[in-house]
Design a protein around this nucleic acid. Structure first.
Lengths: 195, 195
DNA sequence: CCTACCGATCGGTAGG
DNA sequence: CCTACCGATCGGTAGG
């Protein structure tokens, strides 16, 4: 019987193990020697697969940025769908990424500030565009009278807040799945506004 | 004319400067030499006022825990007030601490994990009790039919999410003051539920 | 509060 | 992938 677990390349193993460590202890507090120990090799050996510690962080942050962006594009691809529907789909996609790639998501959310320039500015621009797209969706929904909220900007803030907080409480196998979480967020945070 | 600015003790200056640095760069990524430079003294000199780097973090985290706890106690002291009123007052108090002590609040919210035992466990217990008190308030409000929400536990999560996210967007002098933010949070997050 | 320093650890490299 | 090591920097201390 052959093994079914796909064999990760050493580089992929490094990324995966580093992601878990960066999440648990923070990027700055994680040493390359800890990472090496977790991989069962010596510290120096890591550098035949990667160039620097920050390169790992860079890869994690921008890979996740890509995933979130791709989900958003997919959710808004159907121009015939209402803004409310596009928003719900976007939230669902975001929640799925958070849940499916939980460790990397938390690193993406909290450790990006340790990127140095010019990566830091690139990252912030991506995040700004992502958030702007959500604000735009909410604004369109309000304008089309599909959504109602007393303060669209505030609604967007609470939405991002809840999405960012999710990894702090979500446990796989809990009573709420991705779809139900997305539904609750869409309904409750935006004022139960899907009319 | 006498100076009105109160002269901070050197220890208080160290705490204040460290708080700003810990917020901006993170606890682990902030060195005592950076802190010393920001204070205009040499690194070794800091240690005539404090015992260790972690002692500073400890003081920040537990001072803020005290502030949040005291606000909660004050908000719930009037037993004749409804649960909804107590909840609104508690949120107002929390928002005021976040805004008034912004740097320290962010350190409290994100850098506590660098505390070592037994402080870490003490801290987590305080936070757990604090969150439990909010869940209790929400549950009492729902039971008394003063609040309505499809899922009280979920409402509590979105509330903490929004409170934790606030320092990320709040700018002093913006259009929303503490009271209005607290009102929006109470109304919008809990389903516009103050009947 | 400074000078001078401690041992430990950091990210990273050379050579095999 | 390991051994052996680099210079830099870390938190912290002794002595004045």
């Amino acid at each position: 019987m052959e093994t079914t677990a796909p064999t990760l390349s050493r580089k992929a193993q490094i990324d995966q193990t580093a992601t878990a460590l960066f999440r648990r202890r923070g990027y700055a507090a994680t040493s390359m020697r800890e990472l090496a120990a977790a991989l069962g090799i010596e510290a120096g050996s890591i550098y035949s697969h990667i160039r620097s510690k920050e390169e790992i962080l860079h890869r994690i942050c921008f890979r996740l940025a890509d995933e979130f962006m791709a989900g958003l594009r997919h959710a808004t691809a159907d121009a015939s769908a209402s803004a409310a529907t596009q928003l719900r789909r976007a939230i669902e996609s975001h929640v799925r990424v958070l849940i499916h790639d939980a460790d990397a998501s938390v690193v993406f959310l909290h450790e990006w500030r340790h990127l140095s320039e010019p990566a830091l500015s690139e990252f912030l621009k991506l995040r700004h565009d992502y958030e702007a797209a959500y604000r735009e969706l909410i604004a369109r929904g309000v304008e089309a009278d599909e959504l109602q909220t007393p303060d669209p900007a505030f609604a967007a803030l609470t939405l991002f807040a809840s999405l960012t907080w999710l990894p702090n409480w979500y446990r796989p196998g809990g009573k709420l799945g991705p779809d139900q979480i997305a539904e609750r967020l869409t309904d409750q945070l935006l004022g139960g506004l899907a009319k």
